[in-house]
Design a binder for these strands. Structure first.
Lengths: 188, 188
DNA sequence: CGGCGCCCTTTACACAGTAAGGCCGATCTT
DNA sequence: AAGATCGGCCTTACTGTGTAAAGGGCGCCG
């Protein structure tokens, strides 16, 4: 019973990608070490060499992955457009991996995710927005909540409700609420 | 080895209360059937008689419990005040049980929770707000997100960050963002 | 007093996370 | 070229978890 070499060597990157795929396709509940190992054609214990800290650390990494975004402020001199770009980027990143939304909202931002928040605050401040920290907090709240409500609406991760994969209403609803919030922030 | 009678009989209500207590105190991860049984001085399997559907149904019930709120519209003729009352009530209900926030945001509203949303929409519509459904969706998004961000900030459910239980900043941040959103919704 | 039905317990099994240690193959050393 | 070294993966094993199935006591009705 020789210890066969996996087809391509394991890496933290590949592990995280596979974990995201499983979580998105089957839900967080079914993301297990052994299943993850199967997807990577490796025994479960091999993962621990590349992700020290075990499952907890893996989940942290997933949360960090879907909450780390960046926006190039070039060409967006008005803070309102800049803020809109950040929000749309954040929403897209979360919607791309619905399976880990619960983690993203629960785990405090760490590392690159925290850095992204600081960068967003700095950019908005530079663009002339007063009290950028408060604005960023309100915008992050709205983005998180929007995605959560949108996924609730489409019945994601719920065997009882039908999956309404096409949700053209989601975009429009997001933009309307975002517009309202930005307008309100401008006047405060 | 007689099958002793529990001190006070089990009930769905008592089970849900105990589950909330455990989830809030130790996190969803540590809410297990056996632990729940211990808290109720009962064997784990006894729970299945009062909560058909097992753990999945229990979690659904928890989510429903913390997202079911109601507001008396009497004395709040202006839709803006009414909307504010609903948002504050929703936030309070979620903050009261931080352990199940992830469930509340993930599970689609069902039963009494869905009814509460319909009631809120109806009330705001009656109060003269145009396009109440869109407004309710935006407000729910903001409430969910605010609580999530607030709990992230206080470091809830994270052994690494310190628990900043007193968070006077949370209320103020919530009110400021809420005010901005309501202002924006008025003008849309 | 006998039986019934309701609650609860017991037992059992498949599967979860993960600590400890072993083995293989690749690379380096001489 | 042959042995040494080491990193990456596997094997084994143990504790905990969700839950199906079946058994047992207590109260209530006749």
């Amino acid at each position: 019973m020789p210890a066969k070499r996996p087809p391509i060597p394991l890496s933290r990157e590949r592990i995280i990608d596979a974990a995201l795929e499983i979580a998105d396709a089957q839900g967080l509940r079914r993301l297990t070490m052994r299943r993850l190992g199967d997807a990577l054609q490796v025994e479960a214990m091999a993962i621990y060499h590349h992700v020290p800290g075990g499952k907890e650390a893996l989940l942290d990494a997933l949360a960090q992955h879907v909450t780390t975004v960046s926006v190039d402020p070039a060409g967006l001199p008005a803070w309102r457009d800049l803020a809109g770009a950040w929000c749309r980027a954040g929403r897209a990143a979360l919607l791309a991996h619905p399976g880990v939304l619960a983690l993203a909202m629960t785990k405090p931002p760490r590392g690159s995710a925290a850095a992204a928040i600081r960068e967003q605050t700095q950019q908005l401040s530079d663009a002339g927005l007063a009290d950028a920290p408060a604005a960023v907090r309100a915008l992050r709240s709205y983005v998180f909540g929007s995605v959560a409500v949108e996924l609730q609406q489409t019945g994601w991760a719920d065997p009882r409700t039908e999956h309404v994969s096409g949700d053209p209403e989601g975009d429009a609803a997001f933009e309307r609420g975002l517009s309202a919030l930005l307008t309100g922030l401008a006047g405060s």
